[in-house]
Write a protein that binds this DNA or RNA. Sequence first.
RNA 1: GGUCGUUUAGCUCAGCGGUAGAGCGUUCGGUUCACAUCCGAAAGGCCGGUGGUUCGAGUCCACCAACGACCACCA
Length: 696
Amino acid sequence: MDKVYDHKHVESKWYSFWEKKGFFSPKKTKKYFSIILPPPNANGKLHIGHAMYVIEDIMVRYHRARGDSTLWLPGADHAGILTQVVYERVLEKKGKTRHELGREEFFKQTYKFTQENKKHMYTQLRAMGFSLDWSREKFTLNPDISRAVYQTFKLLYDDGLIYRGDRMINWCPRCGTVLSDLEVNHKEKEANLWYIKYPIKNSKKFVIVATTRPETMLGDTAVAVNPGDAKYKDLVGEAAILPLLNRELPIIADSFVDPEFGTGAVKVTPAHDPNDYEIGERHSLPKIGVIGMDDKMTTLAGKYSSLDKYAARKQILADLENQDLVDRVERHKYSIGVCERCDTVVEPQISKQWFVAVNKTGRSGKNLAKNALEAVRTGNITIIPKRFEKIYYHWMENLHDWCISRQLWWGHQIPVWYKGSEVHVSVEPPKGSGWKQDTDTLDTWFSSGQWTFTALGWGQKNFRDFEKFYPTTVMETGYDILFFWVARMIMLGLYVTDKVPFETVYLHGLVRDERGQKMSKSKNNVLDPLDVAKKYGADAVRMALVFGTGSGNDTNLGESKIRGMRNFTNKLWNIGRFIIDMAPEKRAKTKGSEEDKKILKELAGIKSVVTHGIENYNFGIVSELLYNFIWHEFADNYIEYSKTRREETQETLEKVFEESLRLLHPFMPFITEELWQRLPQAIRKANSIMVSDWPE
RNA sequence: GGUCGUUUAGCUCAGCGGUAGAGCGUUCGGUUCACAUCCGAAAGGCCGGUGGUUCGAGUCCACCAACGACCACCA
C-alpha cells in the first residue's frame, strides 16, 4: 500500500463493481425502504446543491445494510419553462429564435439537449458514489409518464377540480406565458407615486387618485373610495371624467380602499391589477385591456396604441402635465412582480387558462388542500425539521387556485381537444376528424408533483414497483422547493392514490460558500462538485457536506473543509496500512486489557449512537462522532497503545477497524470498500462492504 | 404587514438542562518506528442583550437588538 491514499485509483473501480453486481437494485425482503431522487433539471450540469443527495445515499446504504428491500430511483426533470428559457438562450447565441424553428423542431432540439445533459448528469451522480438503481431510471417527459400525467388531469377534470376560465393571471411578456403565483418573485422597489386629478362630472372640482402606473389609467372603469370615508361620502354615486380619454367613471364605495393611503381615492383598472379585478367583479365593472400580451398598448388605448407600455407612461404623463392634471409626485416604496426565470416585470392580465381548484371539494369528496393539510396535521406525514410544518400550514391555508397551463412549447401538451364549441378531455386523442389539441403545455410542477407515483409506474403497464414501494419512505430535498414541489406532491399523491406519497419529508439547507454567500458565477465562488471530487475524492466531498451540519440550516462549504475531510481519508488509509500491511506474523490470544475493554466499549457506544443518529436524521452529529472516534479514540489512543504489543492486539485492531468501516460506509463508500476488501477474508462476511450487514 | 431562522473560540459551524466542542487558522516542540494530508502541547469563549423558570441554562420562557430568509392584493 502506498503511503498516501489516492482516491483516483479507487473510486471509479468500485462504482462499476457495485453496479455490475447489481447491488443497487432492491433485494426481496419483507421491509421496504424507498426514496425517489428529486429529479435534477436536465438543462445543465449538477451543482454543489445536488451533491446534497449524499444524505439520501447515506439513508439508502444504511437501510440496505439493515436488510431492507431498498430502492433509490433516479430520474431527471424536463423542467418546462426553465429549460425552454435556457435553450432559447442557446439558440440566441446562434442568432436564432424558437419561432424560426417552429414548435416541432424546437421540441426535437430541446429534447436532444436535455438527453445530453441527462447523460452527463448521470455520470456525475455516479462519480459521487450515489447508489441509484439505474435500471429504473425515468425522465419526466417519457411517453409512459406523460400518459400517467394525462390520467391525473382527466381524473381531476372529471371530478370538477380542473377548470378553464378567464381569470386575472401573471403574464411574463418575455417568456410569452402565464406564470403561477409561485413563479413570480417580488422585488422591493422605490418608484414614483403620481397624484392625478380626475375631474368630477358637472363640477369644477377634482378627485385626486394616486398611482405608480399611470399607463393603466386608460383602462380605468371606476374610481373607488372607502364606504366609511366621510371626506368622499357625497361623491359616491357621482361620476368622474377620465382624463385624456374623457370616459365617464362611476365613483363607487368599496371597503378594499384604505382611506389613510394616498388620497383615499383609487383608480380602478380591472384588467391590469389583481385588486382592481376583485373590485371590478364586486361592482360588475367593465374590464378594458389596454396593455397587450406583448407589453404594447392595445387599440383600446386610443392614440397611445402600439406604444410600449413604458413609452406610453412617459407620453401620458407629459400630456397630463400639459393639462395641469398632475397634482404632485411622491417617492414610494412598493413591491413589483418579476418572472422567476427571466426577471422581466410581470404584467397582470386577464386570460383564459386552465386551473386546479385546490380548495374545492370534488364529486369524489376529495379536497386537495384540505386533505394535504390533514395529512401533516394528523402525523401521516412528518416534516423535518418540525418548524417547516408551520410554514407549510400557513401556505396551504392561504392557497389560491393553481394555474397549470403554460404557453410554452416544452412540456406535456395539455390533454384537451377542441372542435367548435366541443371540449374533449382524455388520455388518447378523440376519434373522428376536426379535433385540435390545446396548444398549451402543463406547468412542470404539475407533472413533477406526481413524480412519487408516476416514477414507480402508476398508470402504466408495469406498476409492480408502485405496489411495492409506494408510499415512499422519505422525501429528501431542499427547503426552497417546499411549496413548489413537496406541497404539490402531497396534494396530488393523496388525490390520485389515496395514500401519502411519503412518510417523512427531510429538508436540507442551501449550500453556500465559505462566508455564507450564495454561490453564483458572477461572484466566482462556485464550487463544482465534480472538480472538488476529482481533487480531493468524492468521499471527502460527501463527508464535508454533512459533517457538523444541522438539518434545515444552510451550510457553508469551502475547500478547506473538504481538504480536512480528505485528510481524514488519508488517516483511514494509514490506519489500514498499519493494521493490514504491517500485520504481525504471529498472533496471541487477546488478554482483554483495560485498553482493549475501553476501545470495545467505545465501539459499542459509537455503534448505537450512529444507528440512532441515522434513524433520527442527525447526519451532522453522526459523521462528527465517527470521525472523532476513528481518529482520536481508535488511532490516537488504541493504535498507539497497540504498537508495543502487536501480537495480542491485532485481533482487536481488526475487529474495531472492520466495524468502523461498515459504520462509515454510508458516508464514505469508496475508501471503506477499498480498505474492507483488503482485510483478511476470515473477518469479512460478504463479497462487498456494500452488502454486508449493519454492525449490531 | 405577517411568519420563521440565525447570533457560541480569529474564520465557518455543531451542541439545545448537569463542570464549554469540531474543522480550518494561530503559537511552541517533534525527521527511524502507519500517516507532515502527521504527532504532542498550548493560546483563544461572562455561548447577542435584559429579565424570568430551575438545586442548576448556550441549552426552557418573555422581551429587546442586529443580520438573514420566506410569505403577503395596500393603489
